[in-house]
Design a binder for these strands. Structure first.
Lengths: 142, 142
DNA sequence: CTAGATGTTCGAGTGCACTCTAGGTCAAGC
DNA sequence: GCTTGACCTAGAGTGCACTCGAACATCTAG
């Protein structure tokens, strides 16, 4: 499989795949006669797993650390499990943080619904500012 | 209240507060005799709301748009409600995406537990690579 | 045989959201 | 009076994760 094909398969760009190789997330690909990268299915699986790790919010540096542990062999299994367990915890924290924003949004949405009603009734003055100051717009109306 | 005080109160840095003012997230602060920014409590409340918006994953540009709508007065209430409702939807999507990673992590963690057991039993060869290729580490061990 | 698609390298550029530096002013305490 | 520390501005720098460009090589279909 050539790099364009792999890119299509994984949804990553060709640029990104070469970038991942450069920073050590992918093994240096074997090349065909013309010097082009040749890939097998296992790389697609590895990239898919990397996409999952990325979806957990793990950054490049974390993924590189994971990849390096992996390269060191089975004796790092415990360390890798530890990383994944840590990451699981941060995922849960992210979920909790997002959950916590929902009532804040809902609250505001309700306030706006009331405001809209009031506005329609022409009693539309200064109920907008529930302790939050108005910002004079930078006047970018052409 | 001076800027350092506000920074302490909101958990933002003084730099960040000035930056927020520059990009239009905060009204141009009134100044004391010496040209220093003076703040009231309502700014702290606004910053707190911005922190909530940020926690939803809304970027600076979105927050600026919201702030500008706000500045335009009550007739933009519906537009702002729309923004918040859209944002609520993206928060839910982010939560779902994170939730979906949990089984992937759990799965891997289980695989590693098995691997560790196997490793202890000295049957520790090549079970590590479940279709995922090994990366030769760039040999950065000092 | 040739056009166009696809690949190569290296390095520069992008967008985001800060974060910091340099070089100054100003108010309060000793 | 002087030092200390908080504040000021304008602009440069940072870290992340790509993303793109230039200039060139090679493969593939007609």
């Amino acid at each position: 499989m050539k790099i364009g094909n792999l890119a299509h398969l994984t949804g990553l760009s060709v640029h990104t795949i070469r970038y991942y190789e450069k920073i050590g997330l992918l093994p240096d690909a074997s090349r065909d006669a013309g010097g082009r990268r040749q890939y097998g299915m296992e790389i697609a699986n590895w990239l898919t797993f990397l996409k999952h790790l990325k979806a957990t919010g793990m950054g490049i540096s974390g993924m590189v650390r994971y990849a390096q542990l992996r390269a060191e062999g089975p004796q790092t299994a415990a360390a890798r499990r530890q990383m994944l367990e840590d990451q699981r915890r941060t995922v849960q924290q992210q979920i909790d943080a997002l959950q916590a924003t929902l009532p804040v949004l809902d609250n505001k949405i309700e306030i706006y619904k009331d405001m809209e009603k009031a506005h329609v009734m022409e009693a539309d003055h200064a109920r907008d500012t529930n302790t939050i100051p108005r910002i004079q717009q930078p006047d970018k109306r052409s």
